[in-house]
């Protein structure tokens, strides 16, 4: 069970973090969060889609790793299979959160449900009431990701304002099974992109969104490769 708790130098002084190079925690994840700052690197190995968070209805950018809930085609017993490993996967079980929406600071939290967070093995997190260098380095990476997620929300809001997001349904026909539809995914509307006015196009350029938009479009070429992993 996921259980996100703020790291505390007192409460967690004896805890350590171990690392799992196989990233086994992703074995049942069919989507994994992605920041806009990762799009270019991710696009060469994973389809990038937008999905709505089921608790808030807000759009999130994600790498698609499976074709139905509970299925990760980019993970096998031998570990993570795709060339790109999303930051969120690498940072797990740590994440950075803003205590309030307007705040500039982050707090570092941990999923205490993860076996990687334990008192037996791995790198120490605290020494003499202070975070170790190892924790500092991991925290920086988590903050980096959180910052990227913030930028991603702004990016998505600009896409929505220009009506560039469109629902995408993937019809899948697994061997020897009934066809089914993977719904709830959104992509970039190429047609609409081509219809933007010069002014709208320039607004995208000013925000440096063009690269990310094209990364998303190009990542669609990864879809058939993901389907091929089913075999």
């Amino acid at each position: 069970m996921t259980n996100i708790v703020a790291l505390d130098s007192q409460q967690h002084q004896h805890y350590k973090l171990s690392e799992d190079k196989l990233f086994s925690h992703t074995r049942t994840a069919h989507i994994l969060p992605l920041a806009v700052t990762e799009f270019v690197a991710a696009a060469v190995s994973l389809p990038i889609v937008f999905v709505k968070d089921s608790t808030t209805g807000q759009f999130r950018a994600c790498a698609l790793t499976g074709l139905q809930p509970g299925q990760n085609l980019c993970w096998q017993e031998s570990g993570w299979q795709a060339a790109y490993i999303p930051l969120a996967v690498r940072n797990y079980p740590l994440l950075a959160l803003k205590p309030e929406a307007q705040s500039d600071d982050y707090i570092i939290a941990v999923d205490t449900g993860s076996e990687l967070f334990n008192q037996q093995s791995g790198q120490a997190l605290f020494a003499a009431d202070k975070g170790t260098d190892y924790l500092q380095q991991r925290a920086r990476s988590a903050i980096n990701q959180a910052h990227g997620i913030g930028l991603t929300q702004q990016f998505i809001n600009r896409l929505l304002a220009l009506e560039l997001l469109v629902a995408r349904t993937l019809t899948l026909t697994p061997k020897g099974a009934e066809p089914y539809e993977l719904t709830g995914m959104y992509g970039i509307d190429e047609q609409r992109l081509a219809q933007l006015t010069a002014e709208q196009w320039l607004s995208l350029r000013a925000n440096n969104d063009l690269l990310a938009i094209h990364a998303v479009l190009m990542s669609m070429a990864q879809l058939p490769l993901l389907v091929a992993r089913l075999a």
Binding site: K52, T56, G57
Partner: peptide, 11 residues
């Protein structure tokens, strides 16, 4: 309560 907090998605 959620709509007041998060709004509703545009699409």
């Amino acid at each position: 309560d959620k709509v007041y907090r998060y709004g509703l998605p545009k699409v």
